[in-house]
Write a protein that binds this DNA or RNA. Structure first.
Lengths: 109, 109
DNA sequence: TCGATGATTCGATAAATATGGAAATATAGA
DNA sequence: TCTATATTTCCATATTTATCGAATCATCGA
């Protein structure tokens, strides 16, 4: 992940509603959620939500697929991993910025 | 770190010049760098840089100390760690977003 | 083909952010 | 105290971002 991609991803997450959306989608897992449900959960009108979903999508952090009339959005874990990798490598120096996780998540290190 | 603090930190890093500054300060380590040197290194006029440094400072990502006539800025590793912790806990779900580092950095996990 | 549903795009507007020169502030040395 | 240096604050302006109703587009079932 290069610095421009990183900036787009950071900017995408640096907004109240979009951070809420991303967290929601991470919780929802691979199944994802339809745009309408996301808008309702976050409490934002559909057209505004569409704007935010487009931002997240453009940043590569979420995926879109059609299921009948609904557009289902889901988190792209690999992209998030790429962002974490960039920050770890470029913004944590020799110091470990990696949080001390009580129980290390599966696959960590 | 709560979600508002996280948003401020993400927004602070989501800008070309500020991301460059933060990377520079991470490299510089605890010693830090004076504002003028940062502005010159990044190629931005002093007044603009002052604005960006204030943003990073307000987000808690960097520290300021005076040394004679110079104001020395340095990265706050703990704040960056807090951001990483928030993202790991809230935006990576059960999946591991932690990057697969070839050689795990010291202190990782 | 028609109407209903789920979602996006358009367009106008409001708000926040970025830029950089000029003026002001703080410190140090002569 | 005067001057030079390092940096910030002020100000005006340009740019980007966010908001949301209305119009449009895509899909499905009857």
């Amino acid at each position: 992940m290069d610095s421009n991609t990183t900036i787009r991803a950071l900017a995408a997450l640096a907004q109240e509603h979009r951070l809420a959306v991303f967290r929601l989608l991470v919780q929802a897992g691979e199944a994802g959620l339809p745009a309408g449900a996301i808008a309702e959960a976050v409490g934002v009108p559909a057209s505004s939500m569409s704007f935010h979903l487009a931002q997240l999508s453009h940043a590569g952090l979420i995926r879109q697929r059609r299921q009948s009339r609904s557009l289902i959005y889901s988190a792209d874990y690999a992209a998030m991993g790429g962002l974490m990798a960039y920050l770890t490598e470029n913004c944590c120096g020799g110091q470990s910025c990696a949080p001390k996780v009580e129980a290390a998540p599966l696959g960590c290190c």
